Measured scan of single mutants.
Amino acid sequence: SEIVVAMYDFQATEAHDLRLERGQEYIILEKNDLHWWRARDKYGSEGYIPSNYVTGKK
């Protein structure tokens, strides 16, 4: 599975969105859409994140 790191904070506005915290790692579950990826955080929460807010883990 692909691990990404959040470059920016993202506040979830929709129920299906996942909040991003800058510097935290997330697991990508689905990339069915170019701009919104389904991800899981370290607490096990899942939701959609803006793909341009994250970068591949170095």
Score class of each variant (00 low, 15 high):
49 I>A: 01
45 S>G: 12
11 Q>G: 08
25 E>K: 08
51 S>K: 08
24 Q>K: 08
30 E>P: 01
35 H>I: 13
10 F>E: 00
32 N>Q: 11
54 V>D: 01
11 Q>M: 13
51 S>P: 07
5 V>M: 08
35 H>M: 12
43 Y>C: 09
26 Y>L: 03
38 R>E: 01
45 S>R: 15
50 P>M: 05
49 I>F: 06
16 H>P: 06
40 R>S: 05
42 K>P: 07
50 P>L: 05
57 K>T: 11
28 I>V: 11
7 M>Y: 05
56 G>Y: 14
23 G>W: 06
37 W>F: 05
22 R>E: 09
48 Y>M: 14
46 E>I: 09
16 H>Q: 12
36 W>H: 05
43 Y>P: 00
42 K>L: 07
29 L>C: 05
17 D>R: 15
44 G>R: 02
32 N>R: 12
48 Y>N: 08
6 A>L: 03
7 M>G: 02
29 L>I: 12
56 G>V: 14
5 V>S: 04
9 D>P: 05
54 V>W: 01
37 W>Q: 00
50 P>F: 05
26 Y>P: 00
56 G>L: 14
28 I>D: 01
29 L>D: 00
4 V>R: 04
6 A>N: 03
31 K>G: 03
26 Y>K: 00
55 T>L: 09
40 R>Q: 08
55 T>K: 11
27 I>F: 10
11 Q>T: 12
38 R>K: 14
22 R>S: 09
20 L>K: 00
51 S>R: 08
33 D>I: 06
19 R>G: 11
44 G>C: 06
6 A>V: 03
46 E>L: 04
43 Y>D: 10
1 S>L: 15
4 V>Q: 03
12 A>R: 07
38 R>V: 10
21 E>H: 09
19 R>N: 15
32 N>C: 15
15 A>E: 13
47 G>R: 02
49 I>R: 00
32 N>D: 11
51 S>W: 06
9 D>V: 04
9 D>T: 06
45 S>P: 01
40 R>W: 03
26 Y>C: 02
7 M>F: 06
36 W>Y: 08
42 K>W: 05
27 I>Y: 10
8 Y>P: 00
21 E>G: 03
30 E>T: 07
25 E>C: 12
16 H>T: 14
2 E>Y: 13
3 I>C: 09
19 R>Y: 07
43 Y>T: 09
39 A>W: 03
6 A>T: 02
33 D>K: 07
6 A>Y: 03
26 Y>F: 03
18 L>K: 00
32 N>V: 13
16 H>G: 15
17 D>L: 15
24 Q>W: 06
26 Y>Q: 00
20 L>G: 01
57 K>E: 09
55 T>E: 12
31 K>H: 06
5 V>G: 01
50 P>I: 03
50 P>W: 05
25 E>H: 08
44 G>D: 04
10 F>R: 11
6 A>F: 04
15 A>K: 12
13 T>I: 14
7 M>E: 06
23 G>S: 04
23 G>E: 05
17 D>P: 08
17 D>K: 15
22 R>Q: 11
54 V>Y: 02
12 A>I: 07
24 Q>I: 05
27 I>G: 02
37 W>K: 00
33 D>Y: 09
41 D>Y: 03
7 M>K: 10
49 I>Y: 01
15 A>D: 12
38 R>W: 15
52 N>R: 12
24 Q>T: 04
11 Q>K: 11
2 E>M: 13
3 I>D: 02
18 L>N: 01
17 D>V: 15
34 L>P: 15
47 G>E: 01
17 D>T: 15
29 L>T: 05
48 Y>W: 13
39 A>I: 04
3 I>V: 13
37 W>L: 03
28 I>E: 01
18 L>V: 03
54 V>L: 05
41 D>T: 02
33 D>R: 08
13 T>W: 10
9 D>A: 06
33 D>E: 08
24 Q>M: 10
48 Y>Q: 07
10 F>Y: 14
2 E>T: 09
52 N>A: 14
24 Q>P: 01
40 R>K: 09
5 V>A: 02
2 E>C: 15
12 A>C: 10
4 V>E: 00
50 P>K: 04
19 R>K: 12
34 L>H: 12
